[in-house]
């Protein structure tokens, strides 16, 4: 592999990643090494406080690590932040939308901020409305949408720039079955097109169904990593939930 050719680098690569918050008793990440290949559908599982959000925010460039390195598509945030940001999409856990604007206006505003314009913006807006199945409600204010519609719109805004890597932080929390099913289908479609997806969730069946690779994380380090079927086979567990509870314990984590 030629390290100078960014086309050959893994989608995401971290080495010795350390993060400690000022008032925390222990570090959120303790020397995390993670490699996610291009086109992988990578599920990050962990109890509350395991460090999932910290990893995600470091990988998205929202936080700087205290130690270690991060390379996204072979590039580093320190040097090529803008180029990285042009090639990633973020779907936050919260419904990150302007409630008083319509679905189309939300897409247009985020599209313009992403640098899209003219025909390209129109095309991407149309595509996003179509895959979110929001064409008929495109000119209605988001405030009037159901939870599922908002989640779908929240997801497709992350796709406006046709990202090579899509970071999703629990994108199906609290929505109806139909919307969840639609989101699953769209994510599988993106995976099939070669998009790399990094996905955090608390739903084990969802991770098992969607992800090509999963990592179980606790106390800032990875406990297990691999394809779901292999992990189950190695651990002799019947379900991912059994494996997860076996690794992270049954004690409730309130942080």
């Amino acid at each position: 592999m030629n390290p100078r050719d960014p086309g050959q680098d893994p989608a995401i690569q971290t080495a010795g990643l350390i993060k400690k918050y000022r008032l925390a008793d222990r570090p959120a990440l303790t020397g995390l090494d993670l490699t996610i290949g291009r086109g992988e559908f990578f599920g990050l599982l962990g109890p509350n406080g395991a460090g999932k959000t910290t990893i995600l925010s470091i990988l998205c460039g929202l936080r700087a690590p205290d130690g270690g390195t991060v390379r996204i598509l072979g590039m580093e945030y320190r040097r090529q932040q803008r180029r990285i940001q042009e090639r990633i999409g973020i779907v936050p856990q919260e419904i990150a939308l302007y409630d008083q604007l319509t679905a189309r206006e939300n897409l247009i505003i985020f599209g313009r901020l992403l640098g899209l314009g003219g025909g390209r913006l129109k095309e991407r807006t149309g595509y996003c409305l179509e895959i979110a199945q929001l064409h008929e409600r495109a000119d209605h204010r988001v405030a009037s949408f159901s939870g599922g519609m908002k989640r779908r719109l929240n997801l497709v805004i992350g796709l406006l720039n046709a990202p090579s890597i899509l970071f999703l932080d629990e994108p199906t929390v609290g929505i109806d079955t139909q919307s969840r099913h639609l989101i699953h289908r769209q994510l599988q479609g993106l995976h099939a097109q070669g998009t790399t997806l990094l996905y955090t969730t608390h739903y084990m069946e969802e991770a098992q169904e969607l992800c090509s690779t999963i990592a179980i994380l606790d106390e800032g380090r990875i406990l297990r990593q691999g394809p779901p079927a292999r992990l189950l086979q190695e651990s002799a567990c019947h379900s991912l939930e059994e494996l997860f509870l076996g690794l992270t314990g049954k004690q409730i984590r309130d942080i």
Binding site: S57, C60, G61, L62, Q81, R82, Q85, E86, I88, I90, P92, Q93, E94, I95, A96, L97, Y98, D99, F110, L113, L114, G115, I157, G158, N161, F167
Partner: peptide
């Protein structure tokens, strides 16, 4: 900040 839009904005090239 509350709605997560700030996170989305921080992740785009602006």
């Amino acid at each position: 900040r509350r709605s997560g839009i700030a996170v989305r904005l921080a992740g785009i090239p602006v």
